[in-house]
Design a protein around this nucleic acid. Structure first.
Length: 425
RNA sequence: GCGGGCGUAGCUUAGCGGUUAAAGCGCCUGGUUGUGGCCCAGGAGAUCGAGGGUUCGAUCCCCUCCGCUCGCCCCA
């Protein structure tokens, strides 16, 4: 069995039974983005790898150890998109969106590729719903994107969520804070966990996020960034918070919230289930990135956005017991026997479909019983039965499958309208 | 990348160091002279995840690999 092909590690097939969830999410995304004035953009499945090295940051895990990069036959170094924000910023610059009315509100759903170790809710290929607002420094826009995401989840029947809000200030004040933080931890370095010693050099902000018992005593007394924000960042966060409150969205300030991407400043947030202990619980997260477009070679342009994993959204829907009524395979199932009847059956199906009525034809060579069993399991409401006798008389039998199975004969010429009448009755 | 658990028909599971590996659901066929659902009968379907080792003999014990899963790192 394992000689057979399998979907590559960390990828999955989305089978017909799961499709209603995907359709519901896509529909809700379309509706919610319409309400908030967003326009859709689609970017390529792969990009110049340097876009991510520069944009996402080449010290991030995403770039350092998770990027699917490759050299194509022409010698270009490309990467399957691990992240939606840099490509959208790239497109903003490439197509002169700075000359569009500002801000520009964009959304997409895009496959993301990251070479990390798969778990439930973490895949090597996943799909993200992503929104970006480019060209506005307004904290109300921060609140708007968070609210948009919240409404999406609400609409999909996901309950028990919480918004975790934080701020990582602007680069200058943050650097100063990081120095204070390192000064605080430096004397205790030899008593910290190995992970935290590594973080001390690589990503000091994450020191505060450690779950290691050895680090806990030091964490408690460490200076917290959200408690020492610059006045501008402080005011920004207060506005975001107030706006969320007015929207009726419960939000908690998380002083330890640190996003793993280099480009964030000020607002960072994530939305998590409150009743799930799993580590992969975060279903949506984002933040402000006022310096990113400039970093990519454009003019100073503020931006904010988020990504939300659709696979994780669906897992949450299922955990919230959102279910969909099974959709019937067809409306009319045509049963036939004999060569003449087969020809009539095929043509009748053609005519039904052109009249907008879904129709499926039974398998030639199978018995009536067998074909009617198929009709039954297809959940069709009507069976049309064409045997040799009917074919000879130029008639078909129309049988009701929803009740006791009443049936009546009708001339072939009148079959479509008879079936239609039956279905609308 | 690190550590733990799991892996038997399409699905959910039972089973035992030793003849032809079992059940339910699903699928196919039949019980009707041309007719569904319920019921009944029969059938197909598993090199017991893969490879190697121990053993007279392994689905069962050991190792490696693959996949899933839980935790860590990180992230959606």
């Amino acid at each position: 069995m394992s000689n057979r092909f399998q979907a590559p590690r960390g990828t999955q097939d989305i089978l017909p039974d799961a499709q209603p969830y995907w359709a519901a999410v896509q529909d809700a995304i379309r509706e919610v983005t319409r309400l908030y004035g967003y326009r859709r953009i689609d970017t390529p499945a792969f990009e110049d790898a340097a876009l991510f090295e520069k944009g996402t940051g080449d010290t991030t895990d995403i770039i350092e150890k998770e990027m699917y990069s490759f050299t194509d036959r022409g010698g270009e170094t490309l990467a399957l998109t691990p992240e939606a924000t840099p490509p959208i910023c790239r497109a903003y610059l490439e197509h002169g969106m700075a000359s569009w009315p500002q801000p520009v509100r964009l959304y997409t759903t895009h496959a993301m590729f990251r070479y990390d170790r798969p778990q439930k809710g973490r895949y090597r290929q996943h799909t993200q719903f992503d929104c970006e607002v480019l060209g506005s420094p307004d904290p109300l826009v921060d609140a708007e994107v968070i609210e948009l995401l919240w409404r999406l989840y609400e609409r999909l029947g996901i309950r028990n969520l919480a918004v975790r809000l934080g701020s990582i200030d602007d680069p200058g004040p943050r650097k100063a804070y990081v120095e204070r933080l390192k000064d605080y931890f430096r004397p205790h370095l030899d008593r910290l966990s190995e992970d935290s010693r590594r973080r001390f050099d690589r990503n000091p902000l994450r020191l505060l996020d450690s779950k290691d018992d050895r680090d806990l005593p030091f964490k408690a007394a460490a200076p917290k960034l959200v408690e020492q924000l610059s006045p501008a960042a402080e005011a920004h966060m207060a506005t975001v918070r107030g706006a969320l409150e007015s929207a009726g969205i419960p939000c908690v300030i998380d002083p330890l919230l640190v996003r793993g991407l280099d480009y964030y400043n000020r607002t960072v947030f994530e939305i998590v289930p409150t009743d799930d202990e799993r580590a992969q619980g975060t279903i949506g997260a984002g933040g402000r990135y006022d310096g990113l477009i400039e970093l990519l070679g454009g003019p100073p342009t503020p931006g904010i956005g988020f990504g939300s994993g659709i696979e994780r959204i669906i897992l949450e829907m299922q955990r919230n017991e959102v279910v969909f009524a099974p959709t019937p395979l067809t409306e009319v199932f045509i049963v036939h026997h004999g060569a003449a009847a087969a020809a009539v059956a095929f043509k009748l199906a053609v005519d039904l479909r052109s009249a907008g009525i879904p129709a499926v034809v039974g398998e030639s060579g199978r018995s009536f019983k067998s074909q009617l069993r198929s009709a039954n399991s297809s959940n069709a409401r009507v069976a049309v039965i064409i045997g040799e006798a009917e074919a000879a008389k130029g008639e078909v039998m129309v049988k009701d499958l929803t009740g006791a199975g009443d049936q009546h004969a009708v001339a072939i010429a009148g079959a479509v309208s008879d079936v239609r009448q039956h279905l609308t009755a």
